[in-house]
Amino acid sequence: MSEIPQDTIVLPEDRHLHYDFASGYITAHFLRNLGEGRILGTRAGANGRVYVPPRAYCERTFEPAEEWVEVGPGGTVEAATIVTAKFLGHPDPPFVIGMVRLDGAGTAITNYIELSDEQLADLDTARDVVAPGTRVKVQFKQERQGRVTDFHYVLDNG
């Protein structure tokens, strides 16, 4: 807080509001499958776009998207950024966030891309390591909770 003028008051308050977000069946199925080590998308129509993360509807055609399609585990970086500042609720920097198109998906899903400390030592080099077109693959955590944080991306060196 900057300097407070004399004769004024600052009233502090901490707010806590609890929410219980309903997932619906589509999101729940996606998250449960993450827990099983699979990434699923939904497709609208026979030749429709495959949405990852899945939606119950195609945003473009406004038709239901109900067919399940498994995607990945390989994928291609559409774009990535290396975060070097500390944000509340985020990991300690530096870390990499990337939009990755998983094989078989029509859209890209954002998540962390793991690089080694060595790779992150020089940011210009690191940017090139995760340049658009870079192949990555999904890596699941050993202990999964059915949340989107159950997986992240690693470079696909093989």
């Binding site: 309903a22 999101t27 509807y57």
Partner: peptide
């Protein structure tokens, strides 16, 4: 019950 808000909105708009 359990419906995602976005899916309620879709169903209503549709």
């Amino acid at each position: 019950a359990g419906q995602r808000l976005e899916e309620l909105v879709y169903e209503t708009a549709k």
